[in-house]
Design a binder for these strands. Structure first.
Lengths: 210, 210, 210, 210
DNA sequence: CATGAATGAGGCTTCATTCAT
DNA sequence: TATGAATGAAGCCTCATTCAT
């Protein structure tokens, strides 16, 4: 009467569930305290498990943090891709990608900064966390620069170096994100999306010859 | 013929020299290992002094790091201001400010990132270091937004929110900086300056209606 | 037949046992080296645990020392009270209180001095340890001066200032204690008790007019 | 014209003067902060000399503290002896000795406690300081017990163990001293002298049989 | 002789990791 | 498998002592 041998045993399901719980807890703790003060103790507390349990799911703190980043990154990039597919024009795709990021961040608060973070002063540069950040960052860069490349081909964008262009967009988003996170009552997402897109498309120049 | 105003005793000169040596050592260590792993032990080693000696010059690790940031920030902003005064047009002022930052960073490598850094995931958010970063960042924001405001009045720039505009520029510079720092052989500064200015003034839009 | 109220889990029992072990180790170390040289390292060694373990039981060195004092003080005052209740006459109560102290100290050696110690030259005067000493000392003062007051009312004692009288008794005890502790073979307790009581009741005067 | 070769050269006089200055400074610092917090830095500051200078006069911190104790002890015992010689009766001698101590302590405040201090919890027991304290204490004990012995021979005192009797007196004095030092406005010396002498001669007993 | 900058041993405390239950 | 007590390396800081000037 048992269901036809599921591809995953009950143990595996439980394990995956716990893993996700822990990663979420890590996300919350990092968001609240920052990387530097996110201790295993605190993460365990937040996850409602014992400290030792964390080591049954992750081999080290480094690994746990790296997975937490990866986890959130997956979430975010999935949303971004989905959002861009709902519209046609590349300007609109860009707009929706920006909106997806801002919305995601609104849900996950401060932690989110780390997603677009690069290997930074704060983190041991040889570390797994650093490599994960770099990898995630690169993936997002490729995603955005893909939009730019195809948008340039379609004539909607100037033919700028797409990698550079993508980087710039990401930085601008992060900058605005930071403000939003600092604000107790940030403006609504739409208005910030427009600010970014307007600036990103037209720059600050008055339009005359340079 | 010698001036009768010694103004600084030999001891003061020596003290200032040592202070600068330590700050430079700190700058190198932070550049190499990041904030999180910059220990007093390591800084002392780099400076060629004993651990205890650091405490003759700075009352705590926090204070030392904060001063290292401040020290570099002063250098950089001084250069930026000077550079902008050598030219008239606001677009040129902007260009020279960007160049000053890139050049300064070329000399001080990775540490430099911290200068434009804001209180970040890596750093205890209540700390003196965090406050110093915020202060420095705010000062640079005011400097750039001053340029934007006056440039807008002169008709060279669109009337965007100057604080936002300044933030965006700084983020773009940081983004490029990061690439330069990662590159073993970064392109020459002029070319990167043009990339930034071009993007910053015109955006990536093709120019049609949005 | 067994009680159904476990009241304390096995973990709590173990915890209490360890706590007591550590406090005893601290007591020995303080007794051996004095407060000033009682380091956490040394206490951990004496207790047979790692340095870090101490911090699972006490939040700081101060707290550990303060609890060690408190721990021993509780022991001692409990015994003193019990001893005084076994006899009627106030002179006898006094005698038994003195005996309790001397006996207790015989068991706990040098550390014991600290129990009757007041915030002293050796200890940071604002510290928790200092406050604990003061508190303990005051409690003992009240206990003794209670005996004096009631004994005076019963006509057994002269109506001296009871607080002063209590202080004097404690100091006399301490003085004798010190000798006992210094001696490898102190005289038996009874004889010292009589010495104290005799002196305390009659003074050194020959009895004529002053 | 120079005075006929003084027994001490000018250098020696200066040296002795400096030595005394430093010892006084140490006395003040110990009185203010206690032994545990009396650092060489602080003593040098108080004495108005450089830290290194202290080591020209004393070979170590230990030695300096021991000499400071010795120095103050000499002062005090000299006064006590002188005071006892101004009167005949042993009860009066005792009274004057007590008064000398209280008066001396009024001048030198908290530091004074250390004079009657015995090797204590606070101090490394093998140390020079500990040995100095013991020595000083013993000397004072001998002084007082001499009074008691001779007073007993003259019939003024009961024939108690003179060493014990001396100890008890010293402890009683210390106890009162402590109160005086804690009080912002201690009662006048005379009244405390009488309290001590009254208690010391007659005890607290009501006079009936024990 | 005097100075005070420099030293470095040693003290307190934190926290990632291990392991017996 | 989960726990959390125990561990000890490593970090920050203090201060007695030394020594070049």
């Amino acid at each position: 009467m048992q269901t036809s041998r599921p591809s995953r045993t009950k143990e595996e399901v439980v394990k995956d569930f716990r893993t996700a719980e822990i990663l979420d807890a890590a996300r919350r703790v990092i968001g609240e305290l920052g990387f530097a003060d996110a201790s295993m103790e605190r993460i365990a507390l937040e996850a409602g498990v014992a400290k030792g349990t964390l080591y049954r799911y992750f081999e080290s703190k480094e690994s746990l943090l790296a997975h937490a980043l990866e986890h959130a990154h997956r979430d975010m990039i999935t949303r971004s891709r989905a959002a861009t597919q709902r519209v046609r024009a590349y300007r609109d795709k860009l707009r929706e990608a920006v909106r997806a990021v801002l919305e995601y961040s609104a849900e996950h608060q401060a932690f989110y900064q780390a997603l677009l973070e690069r290997p930074d002063l704060s983190i041991d540069r040889e570390s797994v966390v650093a490599r994960t950040l770099t990898k995630n960052f690169e993936e997002y860069i490729r995603f955005v620069s893909g939009l730019l490349t195809r948008g340039a081909r379609s004539g909607e964008f100037r033919p700028v170096d797409p990698r550079r262009g993508a980087q710039f967009l990401i930085e601008i988003i992060r900058s605005l994100l930071r403000e939003r996170l600092a604000d107790r009552k940030p403006p609504d997402v739409d208005s910030d999306v427009e600010t970014i897109i307007d600036f990103y498309l037209h720059g600050v120049g008055a339009g005359g010859l340079e």
